[in-house]
């Protein structure tokens, strides 16, 4: 993937205090791997979706700490790097079927949201550019729909919770809000209901049975010959 020009150009990065020369143009994660680090935790989809590789870094001479997903951000000369393997943050246990929307459930399960000082540090830490503080504030005043909407792009990386001076577990709380929203507040998608009914009625049983009874070779052959649906045509979801 590295072009010839980039291959010639090398940059200096500092990983946990030790300096390495790596080719320019690599992501933080690839650069660290190039330097000899191996990720068994703190790495996942490598496509910017799973949130496992959240990281902090700093540029030489910059007073600010920076935040990113290591699989997305390009390593730059003079970066001070470290990888965060995990965010310790407990998640509340609840039964989604036993939620009463009239009560401020988010506050019940995550009372620490009442400790928010509106410092906005969470928002500054978010690699997804989510208005994290605003959704915490929406949650505090019981606005589940707004919490769900504002937090929609969250990939659960946990950087917000690592930085919060009030010990809030933003991303778990927001996930609960989105689940409640999905279960009780969002309009029922009719196409999904129809499909579920078809499944329940056994419309796909025969096809599934056929797959289950195939040999490994037959399966591999079928997989290689599969026809992918075109991304735009027939898709009801945009983006």
């Amino acid at each position: 993937m590295i072009s010839e020009k980039q291959e010639k150009e090398m940059i200096r990065i500092h990983v946990m205090g030790k300096t390495y020369e790596v080719p320019a143009g690599l992501t933080i994660m690839d650069a660290m791997e190039y330097a000899g680090y191996r990720f068994t935790r703190g790495a996942g989809c490598r496509s910017g979706f799973c949130g496992a590789c959240s990281t902090v870094y700093r540029y030489e001479g910059d007073y600010r700490l920076q935040f990113a997903l290591a699989c997305q951000e390009t390593a730059a000369d003079g970066m001070y790097l470290v990888q965060l393997p995990f965010t310790p943050a407990p998640r509340a246990k609840y039964d989604i079927e036993k939620i009463n929307l009239k009560e401020n459930v988010l506050l019940q399960y995550y009372p620490e949201i009442a400790r928010c000082v509106s410092c906005n540090t969470c928002t500054k830490a978010c690699p997804q550019d989510i208005e994290v503080m605003d959704y915490i504030q929406a949650a505090l005043r019981g606005d589940i729909a707004k919490t769900a909407e504002l937090s929609f792009d969250c990939i659960q990386c946990g950087l917000c919770s690592m930085r919060c001076p009030a010990d809030i577990k933003h991303y778990h709380m927001a996930q609960m809000a989105r689940r409640i929203y999905g279960r009780y507040m969002s309009p029922v998608p009719q196409h999904l209901e129809n499909r579920l009914q078809e499944i329940a009625d056994g419309a796909f049983d025969a096809e599934l049975d056929k797959l289950v009874n195939m040999s490994r070779e037959e399966l591999e052959e079928a997989y290689a010959a599969r026809v992918s649906e075109e991304a735009s045509a027939g898709s009801e979801r945009s983006e």
Binding site: C116, V117, S118, C119, D134, Q137, L140, P165
Partner: peptide, 21 residues
């Protein structure tokens, strides 16, 4: 757009954190 005022005013002179809200 607005956020919680904090409901109580912080009474220690060095505590600017709670003035931010």
């Amino acid at each position: 757009r607005w956020n919680c005022c904090g409901t109580v005013f912080s009474l220690t002179d060095d505590d600017l954190m709670h003035q931010i809200g």
